[in-house]
Amino acid sequence: MTAALSVENLEVVYHHTIQVLRGLSLEVPERGIVALLGANGAGKTTTLKAVSGLLPLENGAIGGGGIRFRGERIDHVAPHRLARRGIVHVREGRRVFEDLTVQENLVAAANALAGRAAQPDFALVYGYFPRLAERRRQLAGYLSGGEQQMLAIGRALVAEPALMLLDEPSLGLAPLVVEEIFGIIARINAERGVAMLLVEQNAMAAFGIAAYGYIMESGRVVIDGPTARLVNDPDVQRFYLGYGEQTTEVASFRDVKHYKRRKRWLS
């Protein structure tokens, strides 16, 4: 079976000079959740922007490799056409349309259904996020951070996506809210059969719902595997989950050297 998304040896350059991705490869199976983890600047967001076609809007360009959506090359398709084909990108920092109401945000998102027979199903969104239903006439700019994240995911849901690209849905949210939102993401995946590529800093939350994980560093994948295996990997534990051998000890110069040695080995 072909994967929902496959990225092969992707190279991305910004402003013709700064290389951000150096031969990145990954795959998202149909109906699966795949986590993409890594430190700041590793290239996670860039990967999502390359897939959703937003890269050229920000002076980025694909320099090599390819991206396939259900087997078809999509690397030079305009972003609004990708959205209409079922790839929606929930951008980092929620990015709700602040001076539109909640309902209007969803109406705007229904543009992704252009060219498809489907009618926008707002009731579905309000079913997953009852709190948005209470606030449907409020300006999105005045929602709380958690509600804005719900709206961002709700907008994606209106587009009836085949593949959802989620960029740090936990960013800046309280732990309880993160738990709630990740629960709903998992439900959407299970009930709607939406494949998901989930970028996260919060590795524990991501491993909670993803079946497979990739860990990026400096524009390429350094470790990948089923999450069950990654969680038990001592390096992953130490560098991405923040526990494991020695972390309870007071940090010393020796630890720093150890970290550097490991880090070099990783990349």
Partner: peptide, 18 residues
Amino acid sequence: VSMRAAASDPVTAYAMGI
């Protein structure tokens, strides 16, 4: 509504299929 959305954040509007 799409025009207002595109005016307030064009990049996100693109990602929504506008």
